[in-house]
């Protein structure tokens, strides 16, 4: 999860992403940041995030992103 927090912190400083909730829903990061974040996550974990995962609930907390990454890795 630290890797995910590092990616998010690189997008926006001054936010405690470890405890943040509603990262996408509450517009803490915007759609352009989301695009950058996806590229970084895919590169970091060597996975491909498909459109079926492109929902707010999968990006709203670090834990949700981590769960998504694990789910894709298990596929």
């Amino acid at each position: 999860m630290d890797k995910i927090i590092a990616i998010l912190s690189g997008l926006k400083s001054g936010v405690d992403f470890a405890t943040a909730e509603g990262i996408v829903t509450n517009k803490i990061i915007d759609s352009i940041d989301i695009a950058t974040m996806i590229s970084a996550i895919e590169e970091e974990f060597d996975i491909e995030i498909g459109m079926e995962y492109m929902e707010n609930k999968n990006f709203d907390t670090v834990a949700a992103i981590w769960n998504m990454v694990q789910e894709i890795e298990e596929e």
């Binding site: 759609s31 989301i34 695009a35 459109m51 492109m54």
Partner: peptide
């Protein structure tokens, strides 16, 4: 401007974000 378009005609903006912008991005 970005914030404006998240507040104006939100359902159209959301549609283009989810069905055009994201599919192109990924």
């Amino acid at each position: 401007v970005s914030e404006f378009w998240r507040r104006w005609h939100m359902t159209l903006g959301g549609w283009f974000r989810d069905y055009v912008y994201y599919p192109i991005t990924i």
